[in-house]
Nucleic acid binder design. Structure first.
Lengths: 347, 347
DNA sequence: TTGTAGGCGTTATCAG
DNA sequence: CTGATAACGCCTACAA
């Protein structure tokens, strides 16, 4: 019976470290390190021997020590607005795919739109020496963010295509996306429409308003938009907005919602009141959530790709795309997905 | 002009550390550490002085060093099946709330139901010295999991109420939840029903099948369930299942789906074929997703609380609930949410 | 090719 | 109450 793993583990109360591996393999600690980090510099025989020992002892190196020694971190920080929203979930997946390929896990924080939590998480991530922080900022110019940057923390802004300062950002052109929705409605003859928007404090809402209202403003004197603002972009708020919506119906023949959840709520509210979509009122959403194509009627919406945003942001953060490193911001294209919820306006 | 932060930062090319703080405050490194970790043991005057310096210099301690010294980790690991699904997103939020209160961030990994990724992430988390791993296992008894436990990694199973071994687990009683759905349908007179289920390899699907079929089996000779199995629990698969569903309609007067996304797809598929819900076919979902109450008809479903699962699991993992530490597994109660998608069976 | 030695930033121990 | 010192596990010069 040779000295097996359990014997080793039992013998020493301490956790397995590279020194123990070295001892078991009859080499020095440095050689173990070389096997792990510079396999080319070690002889095949030694390599095999050390690898065998590591496997049989089930060795897992200690990142804290490695990071400390390296003076840097080996995890990617990520601060999103709401991890329970599939949009951000997809974004996390994208970031994770890229980070995992570089051997880095993703530390996810959900700020819940609280500036206080944002700051708290930011410091927590910094103390963990993350290699970078991808962040959807509650406010784009808080002291917390300034501080982080001053301390040398690498920051990548998400879903925030502002070309404001020297910040690196990856996002979608929401102005354009909303304009595409507007142009689609205009081309179907809808001159008087409603726009159910979230709070203007969210930059995405500002951009979508800019794009949508801009297109209608430029569409002639008879084109008019009634903007209805709700405090949160949820299905419930969408249903509540129907109250206000009915006051301007039937003058408006179509409704554009700042995201699909709002559109879902509006759809539900309207059908409760006996208003048929799209026969009486056309409806357009934003995001192309998973449920959009499966609604009745299937929702015409603007598709954005949070997975891709996450991927690109992580790439920039981890220096995998040098060509993008300088050219900030990275702006992705939205796509109009025409389904069944828009009909030409009845003359 | 006093020695300000920028001067310090500029003067030394190295990152700010506790030694620099000590020097700036005219105390020893150990005192700085005490200010941080044992404030009670340091004199108020010194405390204030050191704190002032730390704030003005914007000091963020290095966790890698702390963790290394402490011989443990200060982050919570979390492996979910699909981070883009709001169910898991909510669960992450719950875990994060608890962990953040203990100053620990959450490292999130999405296994995408791949055993290979699961193992890879598990090792990654272990190398990061996480204090524990909350995991929704792809398979409940893989060698990877055994290995992790052998290495002394603390594991908490999610959404997996098996009382199999000495594993700690936090989950929902899906057998009971599905039984509640069945009893509701039975009480409304639905004796012949269909059950659209996900793959049996997922333990939640097994449990839901057990509960639902069990209730019908015990409900008398005329009660019958047609089970339709689909490969993934998505809206698309739900729509596809309608094909098979129509073959057994109108014999079956109700459909139970293993989750809300499937129900959404079924709803859409049925309405496409001109089958009215709930007038012709009643429908029950599972999960109580955000969109459930906003559908037409509002979906009757079984509510489970992923946020609470995350909270409880993190508590157990971080030793905040000693009373639960021994009593594994923690099983949460599901709730039937009656809305509009079930009507008494027409005689 | 392999071994020796020093230090990354922090905390705990122990002496003053 | 405060300060000097050692150690955590690993990596990287440098020496052999």
């Amino acid at each position: 019976m040779e000295p097996s793993q359990s014997m080793f583990a039992a013998a020493s109360g301490k956790r397995l470290n590279s020194r123990a591996i070295a001892a078991a393999a009859g080499v020095s600690q440095a050689t173990v390190s070389n096997v792990l980090n510079h396999p080319d510099v070690v002889s095949p025989a030694t390599y095999e021997k050390v690898m065998a020992v590591m496997e049989s002892l089930d060795f897992v190196p200690n990142r804290s020590a490695r990071d400390l020694r390296a003076g840097g971190g080996s995890a990617l920080g990520l601060i999103v607005l709401d991890i329970s929203n599939p949009f951000w979930g997809e974004l996390v997946r994208g970031a994770e795919e890229v980070a995992a390929a570089k051997g880095q896990p993703v530390i996810v924080c959900s700020s819940e739109q609280s500036a206080q939590k944002e700051e708290q998480f930011l410091r927590l991530l910094e103390s963990h020496q993350v290699s970078a922080v991808l962040i959807a900022p509650v406010a784009p110019d808080s002291p917390a963010l300034r501080g982080a940057r001053r301390r040398g923390t690498r920051l990548v802004f998400l879903d925030h295509a502002d070309t404001a300062e020297d910040v690196i950002s990856v996002g979608v052109d929401d102005v354009k996306g909303a304009r595409m929705a507007a142009e689609h409605l205009l081309s179907e003859g809808h001159r008087q429409v409603a726009f159910v928007n979230g709070p203007r404090s969210i930059s995405a809402c500002r951009d979508r308003a800019r794009g949508f209202l801009g297109a209608y403003t430029g569409a002639g004197p008879d084109a008019r938009v009634t903007e209805i603002s709700v405090p949160a972009m949820t299905g419930r708020e969408g249903m509540a907005a129907v109250e206000a919506l009915l006051e301007v119906t039937p003058a408006v023949s179509a409704v554009f919602c700042a995201n699909d959840m709002l559109a879902l709520g509006v759809l539900r509210g309207l059908s409760r009141r006996g208003v048929k979509v799209p026969e009486q009122v056309s409806l357009v959403g934003y995001d192309d959530s998973e449920f959009a194509e499966v609604l009745s009627p299937a929702l015409t919406t603007v598709r954005i790709d949070p997975f891709e945003i996450g991927r690109r942001a992580a790439r920039v953060a981890l220096d995998l795309s040098p060509e993008e490193a300088g050219a900030s911001p990275v702006v992705l294209e939205p796509h109009l997905i025409v389904r069944e919820s828009v009909l030409p306006r009845q003359a």
